[in-house]
Design a protein around this nucleic acid. Structure first.
Length: 263
DNA sequence: AGTACCACCTGACGGC
DNA sequence: TGCCGTCAGGTGGTAC
């Protein structure tokens, strides 16, 4: 699930729920998700504090605490946040539970344990340490073009590399390339300036529309490929069959008519 | 240095 | 019904 638009949706969800509420108790249900911090330390820092602000860089969510520290959440493939009061509403794979002063809980759920929870003192230093590229939604064209041109392989692989650009995953990269009518295997070096510009514009467009839809596919435009991610589904542009290929080990969906293979 | 592939986890789904 | 292989929206390490 969680690529940039999903994490942005979690951020807004946090803003509408647990923000500014005092954390009264902290339960680490799975210490495997903790990265670089022990349960005890995490509890000490979180207990009694409040999340006063939130921000996002790529797929990372930064929860700024009133003690100056940051609770940093990464969701892996299956993570999400859930705010609830009654026990019968609790999600199936709670990994970190924050009890709040109003009797509600904010839960970090993560079925496959690929997500990570960090504690950071400095947001920018954390981003540097993780070697993240600029956020895909914040980057300007000049920077985008110069970063992408460092890639030697397929355009999709480069766009998904978090050290190049932070925030794009498998689904949205497919979507952007579909909208830009570029085949995912196209080599970066083979792209014209115009095509690069088009990819950039579509990246912004797709991300903004997905955020607008609260990362919920049911609210997304019918023209989105991600609603038709199935082999032989009809391409929303030309009606031809959608094709699935494998690119660096990931399933990639595309329309072979709209996205011509350069080879 | 850059890129490709596997492993890490759990669960859902389709075929037999 | 049950077992098995395959696959899933991420990423780190390792091998070229």
């Amino acid at each position: 699930m969680p690529e940039l638009p999903d994490v942005e949706a979690f951020r807004r969800y946090l803003g509408a729920t647990a923000l500014h509420k005092r954390i009264t108790e902290v339960v680490v249900k799975s210490r495997r998700v903790l990265e670089g911090v022990k349960s005890r330390r995490l509890r000490e820092v979180l207990k009694g504090s409040r999340v006063e602000d939130s921000s996002r860089h790529g797929k990372y969510l930064f929860c700024e605490l009133d003690n100056g520290q940051y609770l940093v959440l990464h969701f892996g493939m299956t993570g999400f946040l859930k705010y609830f009061k009654n026990e019968d509403q609790k999600p199936d794979h709670q990994r970190l539970i924050l009890h709040l002063e109003n009797g509600y809980r904010l839960v970090y759920d993560n079925q496959r344990l690929f997500g990570r929870v960090f504690l950071a003192e400095d947001r920018e230093r954390f981003i540097r340490k993780q070697q993240l590229g600029p956020d895909a939604l914040a980057v300007d064209f000049k920077r985008f073009a110069s970063i992408l041109s460092r890639g030697r392989g397929a355009v999709k692989t480069t766009m998904m590399n978090q050290q190049m650009l932070a925030g794009l995953g498998n689904i949205y990269t497919d979507e952007i390339l579909f909208q830009a009518r570029i085949h995912p295997k196209t080599k970066i070096a083979g792209l014209t300036e115009e095509e690069l510009r088009n990819i950039f514009d579509q990246m912004k467009e797709v991300l903004e529309e997905a955020i607008e839809a609260r990362a919920d596919p049911r609210r997304m435009p019918e023209t989105f490929l991600l609603l038709h991610r199935d082999e032989n589904c009809a391409c929303p542009r030309c009606g031809g069959p959608v094709k699935k290929i494998s690119l660096s080990g990931r399933g990639s969906y595309l329309c072979p008519v709209c996205q011509e293979n350069p080879e």
